[in-house]
Design a protein around this nucleic acid. Structure first.
Lengths: 142, 142
DNA sequence: CATTTAGTTTAGAACTATTATAAATTAGTT
DNA sequence: AACTAATTTATAATAGTTCTAAACTAAATG
């Protein structure tokens, strides 16, 4: 409720009408202390459980993609069967815990700067992303 | 044809029966000078176009996954709508050309070693992968 | 070498995530 | 208040992948 007017201008500034549904999604995604990771499914469940109103799946897809296109969300690809989104839009890398299927942000003191010595000729680098997969120490002890 | 016996022992050694279909897939994937990237769809088309016999899609999925599990292939996740596989199973990173949707291997002189200073407690690193997305220089000039 | 059995292949159904569609609704404008 | 264009919605459609159960085949056994 608090930051509602912020969300309204955020949406207006990027040419998106501040509809009831989009504001609700903003509230769920951005009215928090910490950033987090989610799948479309997570978000849909979250909304339908914690609020009376239902937002259609199509709208959730549309909105998440619109937010991604406007730079309010980052998409992270870990596995081909699901898309993860991140409300942390700063440049950063990830740990992926294969035991729990949980994504964890890396801070700069965890992964040093990636040194790209040679880029493809005529191309511009649009992003550099490191994914560190981790698993329980005693994984392969069978 | 040449390396057929190698494939037979490769398969036997990992507990997979050397069937006609698996040997054909081995031939297509591994009887080459250079490693390459492919999707299941690519592979299925390749087989049906270049050979008389057809291998069922289910078998292609089964075999590719078996090969992946045995460490003969690496899976690379770039986008959530498709799985890419790599016959280069050495540790290496990738460029992804967003204009052409093509994956390109990085050699060690293109990306320096990634320095992971802090790992998650109690976990072992199972892989470290860097994906450098690149796009045409004049991408955003509209 | 015939028989058995366990693994493999297959076509097609089923499933899951995502996108498209077209009608109903809503926001913002005139 | 009426109009226009954007948005939402339920549902259908699509694409990639996995499941299923019957048919087939490789290897093991007698």
């Amino acid at each position: 409720m608090l930051k509602n007017s912020e969300f309204v201008s955020k949406l207006r500034n990027s040419g998106l009408r501040p509809t009831k549904q989009r504001l609700k999604i903003c509230e769920v995604l951005f009215n928090r202390d910490k950033t987090f990771h989610f799948t479309i499914n997570d978000l849909a469940k979250n909304i339908s459980k914690n609020f009376n109103e239902k937002i259609s799946l199509a709208t959730i897809y549309n909105t998440v993609h619109a937010f991604k296109d406007k730079g309010y969300l980052k998409e992270i690809t870990i596995s081909s069967d699901k898309s993860y989104f991140d409300t942390n839009i700063t440049k950063h890398h990830h740990f992926y815990d294969e035991d729990t299927n949980l994504l964890i942000d890396c801070n700069d003191n965890e992964i040093g700067k990636v040194n790209i010595k040679n880029n493809i000729t005529g191309k511009k680098i649009s992003s550099v992303e490191v994914l560190v997969r981790v698993a329980s120490d005693n994984q392969n002890q069978n």
